[in-house]
């Protein structure tokens, strides 16, 4: 008797399994999209912060550094000679001072503009780099 009950359970489970498999996995037709589902915002990769290679060593008292930042708002360059900043345009060219007998280690910081797309907000963050587009250190030596 006990075995008979279990066999009945198995049969019911198998039938239910086939039913749900057919309806959930392989529908013949596609119904209208379900009502709006609350999805999270897609995660985005960071904007590109790219700095062109610098010239080193150099006798010049200053050097133009060229920076590109996607959706850029503000660019700042800090080094042993101080801080220089400016509004991000395309491309951003900032003239940085160079001290004599000094090795300058540049840190380039870019503020990314905040952008609202529907219910999602992107940007509004800061990117920083100490290397150029080729991955070489942003170092300028002035003898």
């Amino acid at each position: 008797m006990r075995r008979l009950i279990l066999v009945v359970i198995i049969v019911l489970v198998v039938l239910a399994g086939f039913f749900f498999y057919e309806t959930a996995v392989a529908p013949e037709t596609v119904d209208a999209p379900p009502t709006a589902t609350a999805y999270p915002c897609p995660q985005a990769t960071p904007e590109l912060l790219a700095v062109e290679p610098v010239t080193s060593p150099t006798d010049a008292a200053s050097q133009i550094v060229t920076v590109t930042l996607g959706n850029g708002e503000l660019i700042t360059i800090t080094s042993e000679a101080g801080e220089v900043g400016g509004t991000a345009v395309y491309p951003t060219e900032l003239e940085i001072p160079l001290l004599p007998q000094t090795v300058h280690h540049l840190t380039v910081t870019g503020q990314v503009r905040e952008v609202v797309q529907g219910d999602c907000t992107y940007g509004g963050y800061v990117l920083t780099t100490t290397t150029d587009v080729n991955g070489d250190p942003l170092v300028i030596e002035r003898p």
């Binding site: 959930a24 996995v25 392989a26 529908p27 037709t29 596609v30 379900p34 897609p42 995660q43 990769t45």
Partner: peptide, 25 residues
């Protein structure tokens, strides 16, 4: 989208699922 999923029972994959592909195998 950086990634998006289709097919039966597709779910969020850093993008809403492609509902119109639910008939795929």
């Amino acid at each position: 989208y950086e990634s998006i999923m289709g097919g039966p029972g597709a779910f969020w994959c850093n993008a809403p699922p492609l509902q119109q592909t639910a008939h795929a195998k």
